[in-house]
Design a protein around this nucleic acid. Sequence first.
DNA 1: ACGGCCACTTA
DNA 2: GTAAGTGGCCGTC
Length: 989
Amino acid sequence: MSTQENSAALTADDHLILVDGSTFIFRAYHALPPLTRKPDGLPVGAVSGFCNMLWKLLQEGLTPEEGDEPTHFAVIFDHSAQTFRSEIYPEYKAQRPPPPEDLVPQFGLIREATRAFSTHCIEQEGFEADDLIATYARQAAEQGARVTIVSGDKDLMQLIGPKIGMIDTMKNKTFGEPEVFEKFGVGPDKVIEVQSLAGDSVDNVPGVPGIGLKTAALLINEFSDLETLLAQAATIKQKKRRENLIEFADQARISKELVTLKQDVPVVIPVGDLSVCEIDGPKAVGFLKAMGFTTLTKRVAETTGADVANVEATDLEVPGWDVPDHKGRMMDRPGGMAAPDADNNSGDSPAPDGLMVPQTVADERAARIGAIPVDSSAYETVTTLEQLQPWIDAAYEKGYVAFDTETTSLDAMQAELVGISLSCKPGKACYIPLTHKDGEGDLLGGGGLLPDQIPLDDALKALKPMLEDRGILKIAQNLKYDWLVMTRHGVDVDPYDDTMLLSYTVDAGKGGNGMDELSERWLGHKPIPFKEVCGSGKSMITFDKVAIDKATAYAAEDADVTLRLWLTLKPRLASDHMATVYETLERPMVPVLARMEKRGISVDRQMLSRLSGDFAQGAAALESEIYELAGETFNVGSPKQLGDILFGKMGLPGGKKTKTGAWSTSAQVLEDLAAEGHPLPSKIVEWRQLSKLKSTYTDALPGYINPETKRVHTSYSLAATTTGRLSSSEPNLQNIPVRTEAGRKIRQAFIAEKGQKLISADYSQIELRVLAHMADIPQLKKAFEDGLDIHAMTASEMFGTPIEGMDPMVRRQAKAINFGIIYGISAFGLANQLGISRGEAGDYIKTYFQRFPGIKDYMEAVKKQVHADGYVTTIFGRKAHYPEVNTKNPNMRAFYERAAINAPIQGSAADILRRAMVRMEDRLTASKLDAQMLLQVHDELIFEVPEDQVEATIPLIKDVMENACDPALKFSVPLQVDARAADNWDEAH
DNA sequence: ACGGCCACTTA
DNA sequence: GTAAGTGGCCGTC
């Protein structure tokens, strides 16, 4: 370290770290969990985040590697809101709301913290922190030193260059030129040009109306800078854009002044003086002790050799704390500065009874379940173990109990348990708050555990025996979620019923199966909406911040409603003869899927990041070609702008129109145009594919990596489809690309752990086999028994050509027909698919039905059934309802008929896979195999398996899958499963 | 901030 | 022609 000389010029060996203190405070405040100092509730969350960050950077620099420590270091703050910018443009940052009350005292504390760590703390009147950072960064870089700016502020990105980097410690993300390009579409040197056009609503930089980041980048890339653009604005083709650029030219110029950072601030402390000083151990420890940061105190003491016991906590004066008011600016806080023990509800006046209005249920519906009205104010809040016991006793007495968990997240893998509600009798329910914290609005709050709650572990200890007792049926709505949350706390809920699955079993296709919807449908009662409790969007709070009385009304109502739904729906299993479907295809899937979600799958983050770069490059290259061909720049991602170019300016023949009347620019239309010899459309198609791969997969997937498990955990929905298929979301792992070479690279990023392999096992042609079985088609059955190429055989039957040496085009047509049959074929659709006339397609279908009359019979029978009963069934008895099938609208009617034809085929295949999945784990365990089922993709299962067990595992997986129909049903066609092992999903597939 | 539309991905 | 989910754009609130 170069600590020898002050004011010396920096050298290439030096490394200056500039921390953007002001934005750090705000970001830390919002990103980190609220934290208060023990004795007096002083809010210190942001201070804590700041101290940890500061200590880490001072100790090890940006990376834990040796020799990365900074030689120079400063934390820069804003001095006051008044800067030269407010003189240029008074509205600049004018609409900023005042900082939250519990943040105010932390501003001073963070400055104190900086000094306590013997670190330069810099602010200067009339300049924003950004200007000081710009000035220091430029000076240091000019002297050859390396500079790192610690900030997440996009306004600082204009500074990035070869010597100047930026890191967002909160998001653990570094910014270099590629990241700037990613964000602004231009390099760092053009960032201000883009910002002056696009403006910034957060800082109130006006920019030019109608121009966003995307368009701004386009224009700057074309015209190089703002002045050139404004000078040539008259040549812009788009009318509105041209007019705005001319009218708001001066506004753009002002914007540029606002966003341009001042790099020549007359700094009081020269950059050479910012060298890192040795930390004064006792001083730092004294401060940390005063803040009550025990862990960090210990760590700093250890490193500096200070003795914690002998250091007195620094006596701090905290401005902004104990001060009753801030000039009445906190108008958004009706409750004003709340006392430490203030009621969380104090701010909710003047209509606190809005939620308390008794929610009466219509009598006739109440009568249906023999229940009393749902009254969300009548529930009990359980705050002691003594109070909890009667509820547990009631569950034992009844033999069943409805239960529901409240948590901090919709993602069961990250959700923290906040409370549990129970109900054994309609109208009688309780809520057991466990980890509620005081709300955000409380000045003294900042996240302390509220009083009058049973400690989490004690409550779980009391509830676990009941939740796991074989004699008590636990009833939940969407149990998979609660099961996952509870299993993470060591509770295995069993036995159980799931009202969502009950509804899905008896009513699939009749509507949603969510609790609110079911409650309205069956109980005529609208439960308290979640967003009325927690808000929505940016202002949404987590459930642990909800006041306990409000939480009780919401949570206990959920248990009450769940119990009533169970009382209503459970009898229908018997009356509708759906008990077997529920017991074999639905209920047992809950723990199976929950475990799959819990396991997750490994993805190679670096590989995805590299691919993102590759795709970005490819897309950028295509963009240039596209602009060249179009003769102007435009937003390629906008179908509207693309349509104007293709069908307006270039005068190409527009084919189809979308249902809103706009010209369709679908891949089909573009490919047709390409076939006519136009070069532009195929470039667009290519660009769209690349940007889709980038945005949906390579950019988004890393964000789903769970920080704890380092794996990606999808969420399966058991009740989302009409046919019985599962669906996967957040992320959807059932549509990972496979078709194109570029797409398969994404699949290669799904990998097995070291020492393990991925096995992919998929059914071959399962839907056609199901069709052959259900419609009882001798030729098809025979072909499957003989292991023939089914599409070639279909072609051979239809056209009389031998399978040997068949023209691939002929086979392709037969394949399209086979798919068409499964989808409830229409001449229109087949014609579209094959690019032939409706007449020709009709002839094909006629020929097909002549060769396979059983298929025609089957389809007619299904149509007849759906019109008569309103539903169709799979081979295992699952029902798919089509309540609208008898509509008079011929197009809609035909649509529902096709769906009804498809549902037994798709649904039976889904049932078969469900049966395999339900049995798989026991069979693996019985064979002492450690394979873990990770994913399901409709006809495929993916496992992670120890390398040395691969050979033994594959035959067992195949056996379970191929015999999944046994013994319930003798499937008259052999099922064939192909399974392979590899290090990644692409190779295993 | 939210929702509809359009486009893309899969089986 | 069946079944899904997600992301960008763009108009509305």
